[in-house]
Amino acid sequence: MIELPDESPEAILAEFESRGWGDGLPLIAPTAERVDLMLGGADPDEVVAVLAPRDGRADRRAIAVNAVLAGCRPDTMAVLVAAVRALAQPQINLRGVNATTHPVAPLLIVHGAVVDQVGFNGGLGAFGPGNRANATVGRALRFVLLHIAGAVPGAGDASTQGQPSKYTYCVAENEPASPWGSYAASVGVDAPSAVTVHCGENPHNFHDMESASAERILGKASSLMTTFGANNACIATGEFFVGLCPEHARTIADAGFDRGDVAQWLFDHARRPAGEYRAHFDLRVWTDEMNAAADDDLIPPTGQVDNIKVLVVGGAGKHSCVIPSWGMTTSVTMALDT
């Protein structure tokens, strides 16, 4: 515990700034009463995860402190705890995620009953401002990284430019508008509520307001997946999350595509000649098949179709997005504690 001279927002902000804590924005003071409320009677000493690179022990107390700072309501704590647990799974490669010069940030996607119970937004403007649950839980997850994992710009986060989603990056899946049911269930997590953590870039928007053709819509997604600018352009383990808006998803589903068909279509069509990749990159982390391809052979930007993840997010309108991963990381979907 530390002591502040007074209760003003300016006092805590000044104290945190002087210690190198926080994200630069105003904070809620984590008093004992607020932290206890956030804990909701759970054991504060239970260690949820140990987070690299600092090897910080993310016990429930420390998570709750960061949740209070970010402005979370206590009913979001289960989502935050599940997200922290997901971050620590080895396939996330959190040390690399936090230490790389790439701007990668963990995107937290919330699935299932908790979306409505707590009020997460998977609809209009889901990636944008205006929803407390999205904004504060994403911010709290960043605080956990900054404070507990030690992902402080410079010492623990070498990101050359950073990216806006390092402040907060949390959305809900718009499952009610999905023609293909729950994303979590599609990857084998059949639970009432779940979270997915995908360490990636900001959303890359694509727009199609005129097509009644699934192929014309997906063709725009495939063009984003084959940009040379994405960090995972030459990393065969790289994942692509394709966030379809409900209207695009409906058009595609009405053409007979299920979720797997969408991923397969993108895997088959999001391709460039291998020689173009070779001309642009000396360093490539490719499969044997990609390495064996002739320069004229069309190859995908990722090694297997399962690396293309499809879900529905957003509201009315015809904007969707592709979210490339950092590359050397694999997303994790986990059930919330019941």
Partner: peptide, 15 residues
């Protein structure tokens, strides 16, 4: 009036 607050860093796992 002064107040006391928790710090956000938790503890370190490794020796």
């Amino acid at each position: 009036m002064s107040i006391r607050i928790h710090t956000p860093e938790g503890t370190i796992d490794r020796p």
